[in-house]
Design a protein around this nucleic acid. Structure first.
Lengths: 338, 338
DNA sequence: TCAAAATTTGAAATCGCTTTGAATGCATAT
DNA sequence: ATATGCATTCAAAGCGATTTCAAATTTTGA
């Protein structure tokens, strides 16, 4: 069922039918109703490719995922939010999977040149992210989830990682902890660097010396967290508190604490960063987990909204959102043992 | 940079350039090299919409995700596998998010009529899934992840849920357990029904009566699993073993066991189904978790492969794969206490 | 009543590619 | 010298929509 068929069926021209369906004013109200009704009845849907070719819009926004671990729980929560917002506009998400950094760069170039997507979501930036430069050069609209410093205006949304970790660290210091371990993300990623800044700021504000042995950088899996925490707990004196970069990290640390014979919330404290996974709830852990909390899903929804704004013509230099992070205290964080 | 521009630049016709780039035989080798080199140098990429309009292929395969919880860890692992296989063919994944069942049906209709995707992946089927009927009616190729019984040939890939649960249950019975709880998926879903069949078969083979109080059906979140397990552990006599539907479920059950003062692997046994999440490893739990194991990612990769086969002309009635499930015994399952 | 304006419709160009069918040039066979 | 075949190349017709520009019809105004 093509537009042409529908037009013939109605005894009208393609032009008029197209206009009627797209809400142009210069079409008779009775005609419009007749067209709409018939289109509905015959189940007509414009061919997506033809429509895109004619309008130049692709009706999809793209995201490139590199390596296997980027397809993790954080990403799916985020995409859930993006999809939820985009569903209303009948815009889809186009996922491209790549192996290497070079492939990723190629994917952006290809996506831009082939006009597969109207905009990209760029994520997991480094402090000076060349992919952002590339997308600017390619003149394809994008919103950055996170921040980067390339000296040019870029639309971004980020959470206040520095503030969150600074508050969490300060709170632990208030509770008397002096050996506080930080299990952070990969070195070089903006969010990890920001968290480190917050951590160091809180320590130095109290005159507590920084011990490199108490800081680890890696991806957020329970296994790596377990190993790191295990090693740290063997130090003398061992840390009395942990800052976990994610809930997966927290599970690993928890295991190490238990295995070492300590009790979480009594012997050892922990505050974890919670991206709010519906299937892994800090409130339902045992003991309940103190967290710095910020919903990935909300961020995804908002970023979808910002992309729509950019496509609607809003200038990117007006789009910067820094979200505060809640500190939610539960049972896993308590006073340092004497 | 359009094909036309490139052709003019080369002093050739669009026809020849197009053929040269697409590997048609009737083009001079020297010409082909010159075209390829120039295209490369000028960064020419065919416009995706035009290409799709001309060829009738969309270069994307679609998946519809309903509700927020379908965007969970299982889905992201699965999509990771699909994407990995599809990356080599430069085919993308088009995700459509919907709220209700009606929206989902509409999304398939829209996707088919607009030719947005070349094929769909249908997932989480019920025993008699009407969406499969719909896709057959719409004549859009698809592969089903799971199984359904609609009396017509459908391409599918599934794991042997019945066999897996039957073996796990039998093993626990061998160890002397008689009160074995099953935390299963949502009633009506094929995989959950299949697991129930395996569970009941193993019980009845040993003449052990089925107790409905020891079976729960729900989505796989740690919270719900925690509540269910908690309630079951208050029964007298309480179950001495649990079959967990997923690793998330296992975490919830684990919490309930610990909270009730039992020791996992000694007082209470557990075998969990493991979809192989890289960030949540059964081998690194404490105690290590016995599992029925089948990789979601592998399934995704294989389904992508099957879709490519279908698009290549392979008849769907030849495409049925039932994957065996490994039973991996670790520390969480042991003899029933006397 | 008739010209001018407003409303409504349609023919054809366009988007950027693939592909059909025809044409060209050149070597080989008769 | 002519016919045949082969290797290359190209012009033009699609794919299915939107949109420009023009035409036809109806309404309005003096």
């Amino acid at each position: 069922m093509r537009l042409k068929d529908l037009a013939e069926h109605l005894g009208l021209s393609q032009t008029t039918v197209s206009r009627a369906l797209n809400g142009y004013p210069e079409v008779n109200e009775a005609t419009r109703r007749r067209v709409a009704e018939t289109a509905q009845r015959l189940g007509y849907r414009p061919n997506a490719s033809a429509l895109r070719l004619a309008t130049g819009r692709s009706g999809a926004i793209g995201m490139v995922l590199r390596g296997s671990y980027e397809f993790g729980p954080h990403t799916s929560e985020f995409l859930g939010g993006v999809g939820e917002r985009l569903a209303a506009e009948e815009i889809d998400i186009l996922l491209t999977t790549v192996e290497t950094y070079e492939d990723e760069v190629a994917a952006y170039k290809r996506g831009a040149a082939s006009q597969k997507v109207d905009a990209f979501i760029l994520h997991s930036p480094t402090l000076r992210d060349e992919r952002a430069e590339l997308l600017l050069d390619l003149k394809v609209p994008f919103v950055l989830h996170g921040r980067t410093n390339i000296g040019k205006p870029v639309a971004w949304l980020d959470i206040d990682n520095t503030g969150a970790v600074e508050r969490a660290t300060s709170h632990l210091l208030d509770l008397g902890h002096r050996r506080i371990a930080l299990l952070n993300g990969i070195k070089g990623r903006t969010f990890a660097e920001h968290r480190e800044i917050g951590y160091l700021a809180a320590l130095s504000a109290r005159g507590v010396a920084f011990d490199p042995a108490l800081m680890g950088n890696s991806v957020f899996t329970d296994e790596i967290a377990f190993r790191m925490a295990q090693a740290m707990l063997e130090l003398r004196p061992h840390p009395t508190a942990f800052l976990a970069g994610s809930m997966m990290t927290a599970l690993g640390i928890f295991r190490a604490i238990r295995q070492a014979g300590f009790v979480l919330g009594k012997d050892i404290s922990m505050i974890a960063h919670d991206d709010v996974f519906p299937y892994l709830n800090a409130d339902n852990m045992y003991p309940t987990m103190s967290t710095t909390r910020s919903s990935m899903r909300q961020a995804g929804m908002r970023i979808a909204e910002l992309i729509l704004a950019i496509l609607g013509g809003k200038p990117v230099e007006d789009i910067h959102e820094l979200w505060p992070v809640e500190l939610v205290l539960r049972e896993s964080s308590g006073p340092a043992p004497q």
